[in-house]
Simulated assay, not measured.
Amino acid sequence: MNTLSYGLLSFLSRSSCSGYDLMLQIQPFWPAKHSQIYPLLAQLEKDEYVQYEHISQSDKPDKKVYSLTDKGIEALREWLSEPASDPVMRDDLYLKVFCMSLVDSNTARNLFINRLQHYQQKKLKFDNKLPQLQCMTGLPPDEIPSFDSPFFGAYLLLQKAISVNDANIKWCEWALEQIASPAAEKRDSVE
């Protein structure tokens, strides 16, 4: 099985879902399209890792709601015991930063301003998600879910996302300061 297959099993370990719901849930972790998810679900069902219930809907097309089988749970446990692969990072901003000395400081500044706005919008979303997660756990705001809680992993991931996003905001702000430095302005005036 590929990583996306295990990702689908991961989300199904929390609750039964339709293929569409799985696509929405996995997006923050792994960019996957309908064209990838539905064939994988069919294969997982064929291999008996998942099963589905056919749900009739009067106002929409019928849907399949998938759930994990015992075989799927066992496969997920085995996968969890394996070391994770190296993280993959692709961001065209990094390539642009690498050669940004080819453009004027206003163009470079705009790249960072746009990215900073993106991270600030994400921060607003995270600021809403943390209280929602705390509310779902039923714990006081300053208490972390226990390891055996189904919310523990989500809490860890949300804290990681917040930390990375905060670091990205600081980096963008720092880069903007560097672009506004006298050395950068001097270069612009020479050109």
Rank of each mutant, 00 (worst) to 15 (best):
I37W: 01
Q121P: 08
A154L: 11
Y119C: 09
L156S: 10
L111Y: 14
D166L: 01
D70L: 15
C17S: 10
L44H: 13
K71H: 10
S181G: 07
L4S: 13
I169Q: 05
P87N: 12
L80M: 11
D59C: 02
I37Y: 06
K122C: 13
Q27C: 07
D188G: 08
P131A: 01
H54V: 03
S189P: 04
L44G: 02
E177Q: 02
A75G: 01
I37V: 13
E173D: 00
E82I: 00
R187M: 13
D104Y: 12
Q43N: 09
S189Q: 13
S56M: 03
N106I: 02
A32Y: 13
D127T: 04
F98H: 09
D86M: 13
L124W: 08
F147N: 11
I55E: 15
G19T: 02
L41R: 06
Y20L: 05
F11D: 15
C99F: 07
K186I: 08
I144L: 00
K125I: 08
E78W: 04
C17H: 15
D92Q: 11
Q121W: 06
C135V: 05
D59F: 04
Q132N: 00
Y94G: 04
Q178W: 04
E185K: 11
L24T: 05
Y38T: 06
V50H: 08
L24F: 11
N114A: 09
L139C: 07
F152H: 15
K64H: 10
T69P: 04
R109N: 11
G7K: 14
D62P: 03
E191N: 02
A154V: 15
I55R: 12
A184W: 13
L130M: 04
A183F: 12
A161M: 15
P61I: 02
H118L: 08
F147L: 14
S85F: 04
K63W: 01
E191P: 00
D91S: 05
T69I: 04
V164E: 15
L130H: 00
E177I: 01
L111D: 15
L22S: 10
Q178F: 03
W30V: 03
S101M: 11
K186Y: 12
Q43G: 00
M23P: 01
K33Q: 15
K71C: 03
Y119V: 00
D59M: 06
A161I: 09
A32F: 07
A32T: 06
E48A: 11
P31R: 11
W174Q: 14
A32I: 01
Q36P: 04
V164C: 06
I55W: 10
S149D: 09
K125V: 08
S10P: 07
Q132P: 00
I169R: 15
L130K: 03
V50F: 06
I26E: 13
T107E: 15
K160N: 09
A84F: 07
E177L: 07
M100P: 06
L111H: 05
Y119L: 10
R14C: 11
A183Q: 08
K71I: 01
V50P: 08
H118W: 09
S85H: 03
D70K: 12
K46Y: 12
L22K: 05
W174G: 09
Q178V: 02
L9K: 09
M89K: 12
F98K: 12
Y94F: 10
A180N: 14
C17I: 00
A42R: 13
P39C: 02
K64Y: 05
P83Q: 04
C99S: 14
E173S: 09
G153M: 14
S16H: 15
Y94T: 11
P140S: 05
P145W: 05
Q117K: 05
